[in-house]
Design a binder for these strands. Structure first.
Lengths: 330, 330
DNA sequence: TCCTGGAACTTGAACGATCAAATCTTGCCG
DNA sequence: CGGCAAGATTTGATCGTTCAAGTTCCAGGA
């Protein structure tokens, strides 16, 4: 078993003091070039790696970022988190941070979890996903001065804290515009009940695009909770109405999948476009609006490191554009 | 901002020494009951939480478990990791451990990552997923004496290290038995090329069940790399053959999905059963063999804590039974 | 009475890094 | 050639915990 190699081991070998080795690592510019090289050689030769625990004890910084991993709800939309997490881990690594996971079943327990994590591990920051109106978590974190970024806009106050989000309205707008260009005029929207930030945003893109084209969306806007069965129900209802739509834009792949089953028999074909570009969409050939999750994750890390490594900045934010992935269904 | 509350703060308040507080936390049995209660009250009142970094520096143990998060390959099978990760995080939390993520693009880089993680964070253990024949990672870890569990059997040496796995053969056996009971005799297997442990195992369950029922599997065993298109190709080939199968058992949901599209027009209907019970299967009503991922994750943590907290044990292992989830396609 | 032994608790040292302040070098100017 | 500031390096203290080696107290036996 190899001896434990500490900063003192390196110092002895390079014939300098501990502090100089520390400086080579943390403030290379104050070390003379020749010394720096000598120390670096010793570090490489010994395979030295700074012990995070010791560093953390002195600096109070852990280089750890916490992310909540949610139970796979629907199954379909769960995979979004999966890709986001991978992106986060990858970008964080290159920035010298690591991702730690935690779970929480509800918001209150999540705040308890923050307390635990901060107390025990001195976490540097949190990444929150899926924020909604009046989220108590952001208030708690902000109140404690804990750095965090949300993936998802703070729907109440745009500048409350750093965030990264994907422009959902632009996504549904793209989908709607595509259908308009294909000659459709009666384009329905199968969305979630009004009140959720994300859902309202996606609806707005559809609505605004129709309005801009001078098309009347009257009677083609539907609300239902997320789910395959629900999507099918709403689609059947629309198609059986007095003036049925000739195309459908949906707020999620779950809804789109249900809708797809409902329109299958329709003639001429009724195009359906989903949202999130989940594996299910890819598998069955459903056209869908794709979120740049890897990019979003990278931006989250960027914003955090800016706050952590740099001086205090004003809250910054990033709004990314989604892209329409066309497959068989549109 | 609240003052930092350390073990010394608690000690002062409870009028005992630091060490006694430490003992209350780590070895309660050597502390007098009345003292223990007094200290516990101080801990609760102050909201004290042991600083992991300091503890780790002294004990060399971090209470951190590392798991690799893979890039979402196929998209379909990726969601398996998602559910497994959630289970791991949850069980680990209750056992007082946390999950840390890392990425690696190939095996060599993964071993470099081990080195980094062990050097910098003193990781207590690793959970590896998807091991295969002659996996160099397990050899490296075992050689260093680093505790680890694999989710997936070591196909070469059954007792090389602790592992948890799901009995794939039992899964395909269940699927095959179900189809036999439904009256089918020509049941084909759409599997992966021979050589992979997991793939061979799943094939074996199908083969053994047919053999036990005195049914000849001749000409109904197919091999192809994983993928939707590949599954469709193989299914079309089978159905167009001289003595076409009346039912299909597949090694994955990806293959099953492709097969499903190929058999759609067939009359009478050809049942298709997939493997992994991914969200895609649930979404489109594909019958599939479901792995108890939460249970598997919990067992992984169990095995690790047994190694970490207890004395050295002989490598232990757990083989879990999957279950057949019947939907529309069978 | 004195000693022994064990239970209950306390004290100093150490883990490995960084901070802050002290010390040694060097170069430059008057 | 002295003085002095800036640059380079070293030294001692410290973060919060646990280990190892004390100390105190008290019961029980000879």
């Amino acid at each position: 078993m190899a001896e434990k190699v500490t900063i003192a081991t390196v110092a002895r070998r390079a014939r300098v003091s501990r502090q100089t080795v520390s400086n080579v690592l943390n403030a290379p510019h104050i070390v003379r070039e020749e010394t720096r090289r000598r120390v670096q050689e010793a570090i490489d030769a010994l395979g030295y790696r700074a012990n995070q625990a010791a560093r953390q004890m002195r600096t109070g910084r852990s280089r750890l970022i916490a992310v909540r991993i949610e139970p796979t709800r629907d199954g379909i939309n769960g995979s979004v988190l999966d890709r986001f997490l991978h992106g986060l881990t990858e970008t964080a690594e290159t920035a010298g941070y690591r991702i730690m996971l935690y779970t929480a079943t509800d918001v209150d327990r999540e705040i308890v979890a923050y307390d635990d994590l901060l107390g025990a591990y001195d976490l540097d920051a949190f990444v929150l996903t899926g924020t909604d109106h009046g989220d108590p978590r952001t208030a708690w974190l902000a109140g404690r001065g804990v750095p965090f970024v949300t993936f998802g806009r703070p729907w109440d106050a745009p500048d409350a804290h750093p965030w990264v989000d994907v422009d959902g309205a632009a996504g549904t707008a793209q989908a709607t515009a595509y259908l308009l260009a294909a000659g459709h005029r009666r384009i329905a929207f199968v969305g979630w009940p009004a009140g959720s930030g994300v859902g309202d945003d996606r609806r707005a893109g559809w609505h605004a695009t129709l309005a801009a084209a001078g098309v009347d969306p009257g009677g083609l806007d539907r609300e239902t909770v997320d789910g395959i069965a629900e999507g099918g129900q709403v689609a059947r209802d629309l198609l059986g109405g007095a003036a049925p739509p000739t195309a459908l834009v949906c707020a999620s792949d779950s809804l789109a999948l249900g809708a797809l089953q409902a329109v299958r028999a329709a003639e001429p074909a009724v195009p359906v476009i989903g949202f999130d570009d989940t594996p299910v969409a890819a598998a069955i050939g459903l056209s869908s609006v794709s979120q740049p999750l890897g990019e979003a994750a990278a931006r989250c890390v960027d914003l955090l490191t800016a706050v952590l490594d740099g001086p205090h900045r004003t809250p910054d934010h990033v709004l990314l554009q989604p892209s329409l992935v066309l497959r068989h269904t549109a």
